[in-house]
Write a protein that binds this DNA or RNA. Structure first.
Lengths: 351, 351
DNA sequence: CATGCTTGCTGGACCGTTCCAGCACAGGAG
DNA sequence: CTCCTGTGCTGGAACGGTCCAGCAAGCATG
């Protein structure tokens, strides 16, 4: 029966956009007022069961489909949250998104995703698009907007940032892992394997990179290795990792281990090691950060600091939806503990 | 000035959804009718330049933002295409999406992305959501809807499938690579390295897997290796690749090379090789399929059949937008040639 | 029997746009 | 001067829903 409706439209589709049945058409067919159809469709209580059934049947027969635009306009609500993604290529994104999506669905919110293009302008345009859609809240998985610009957006609807907690915009809610602690975990692990000359391949100016860098420094000093601290410039990309590691390996006192700002960059770092005729982990141990699936892939087996990605996604969505539903939510910034995932790119240092 | 508007709303945001300025507010401030504001905002021709400027200024001052819902309702258009993604984890997805997004943007269409959940029901719900938003067209990157169900959707708006071209639904436009040819490329390459016992780790019942399987068989026969044909069951996941390869390696006549249905599964296959104390490529050569970035990562260096992912994304978007803009588009099903990307997981067979 | 409450339904205003018909005015052609 | 054309603008209907006030009928209560 539904198929029949689709068939009818199938023909019309050839010549242009189909004139879809409206709530009024359904009302006529069911012999009731359009108001009642509206009520029945949103599962309102005061509708007689058999009337409701008749309306639902009529809707089904006509192939009625709610018009989200009209709905939003009338209801002043969309029950939709916008998800902004900075980089689809980062394997971290997929894990987080799956969890966000699942939690939102559970709470009866829908999600739409947009992805920020190359530059800040494109990112801004995508965010603007979300706002035009009148999403009720925004979840951002990474962002590169200058401080302050994001504030202008979150003035319009609540937002939660996943991953980086911008210290500069304290009003922004965030769910992140404790990067300082995570970096410490990495250093602790390497030290426990006897490493002393541990270099840090950095990620640049972002808040995340800053914290990981700081955690590295703090941990090194804690182990009495303050003099061995060596931070080289890199980035969150494979290429950045390659260049950073190259620089570190060419240091006069060559490090025996590399702590790299994220998993992707760690891939590049391993390539750099290899290109110098050295091997991982025999000559050089490598630790990444993020705990993405990529790192877990067998031929790679990267030791890394795992973020609770799924949990982060879930919490972010739960917090946002909760806030929208008027629940009182606790603190705006949640920070989850990371954990070390030991695999095959780290080994005891050779004397 | 824009910031000022944001500030004002910033306060109101605490107590609930902000009452955003409407086109009417802008009209009042600029001292014109709302119709003219509407005209000015959509860059209509018959608006005096200085009036337009005044209107734009007023809009800016008030922090006006178009309401997409109202727009859609009035204009009977959304200029939005919906992108359905089956699996965000497949690294192929990101490449394709980037290209789709870029092309759509170039043609002044916006995109929204939804991701299909665990099962066919969730997938259907997401597609339905897109339709409720009244997207003008749909691009699907993979899908698992039973044949016929997808027909019901595409009856309502034009759609292009990327990747798999469902033979069973010939009315669906698609952009794909030639899987039969690609599989042939892989076999040719292995044969040129002296391999004869080449096994195929399969991907299951999907159309894509079928074509790759068939391409493998055809090529083997072409090389006079019909007797060496060995297809083992696997899937498009790492795990499926592992199990498939395990089975292949336990064959009485152990193969010297593995052609695996996609890059992800090839990762699993390599793990299986390793677990048997064998090495890639010295003992076993491995070829993947897709040409994802994953395969290119240095520590992996997988030899693979590369799909022109970016080109596929671009063409799909171009075709869809073109159709929506009334251009006459050629054939509904485009098939691009893949190419072999030779890296370090294949080697000359040892005698 | 009047009253009030509950249940089930209706009519119409409203949301923020677009778009169409139409109007006033200016300038050029006849 | 009149007519015509084009320019710049306005008012209001329409889009497809939601939601509120209100109404009729049935029932219980006093």
């Amino acid at each position: 029966m539904a198929a029949e409706g689709a068939e009818e439209n199938g023909r019309a589709a050839e010549v242009g956009p189909v004139a879809r049945p409206t709530i009024r058409d359904v009302a006529t067919r069911a012999g009731v007022s359009k108001s009642l159809v509206s009520l029945a469709l949103q599962n309102a209580p005061r509708v007689a069961p058999q009337t409701r059934a008749a309306i639902l049947a009529a809707a089904e027969e006509l192939g009625y489909r709610r018009n989200a635009a009209a709905h939003a306009l009338g209801a002043h609500r969309t029950r939709t949250i916008g998800v902004f993604v900075l980089d689809l290529h980062n394997p971290l994104t997929a894990d987080v998104l799956d969890a966000v999506q699942a939690e939102a669905r559970r709470r009866d919110y829908r999600t739409i995703i947009v992805v920020g293009g190359e530059d800040a302008a494109a990112e801004r345009a995508e965010l603007e698009k979300l706002l035009e859609f009148r999403v009720e809240g925004i979840i951002a998985v990474g962002h590169r907007l200058p401080d302050g610009a994001d504030a202008a957006f979150t003035a319009d609807c609540p937002a939660v940032i996943i991953g980086s907690d911008h210290r500069s915009t304290p009003h922004l809610a965030s769910v992140s892992n404790d990067d300082v602690m995570g970096a410490g975990l990495a250093v602790d692990h390497l030290v426990s394997l006897g490493h002393e000359r541990i270099a840090c391949v950095d990620g640049g100016p972002s808040a995340v990179a800053r914290d990981r860098r700081r955690g590295y420094r703090t941990a090194m000093r804690r182990h009495g290795l303050g003099d061995a601290i060596a931070v080289v410039k890199g980035s969150f990309t494979e290429d950045g990792g390659y260049r950073g590691a190259s620089q570190a390996l060419d240091l006069p006192e060559r490090p025996t281990a590399l702590f790299v700002v994220n998993d992707l960059a760690a891939m590049g770092a391993m390539a750099a090691v290899e290109d110098r005729g050295l091997s991982v982990p025999d000559d050089i141990s490598v630790v990444g950060y993020d705990g993405t699936r990529l790192a877990g892939i067998r031929p790679i087996g990267l030791t890394t600091v795992g973020q609770p990605l799924q949990q982060m996604g879930t919490q972010a969505a739960a917090r946002l939806c909760g806030q929208l539903d008027g629940e009182v939510c606790g603190q705006a910034r949640t920070r989850l503990p990371p954990s070390l995932i030991e695999r095959r790119t780290t080994a005891r240092v050779l004397r």
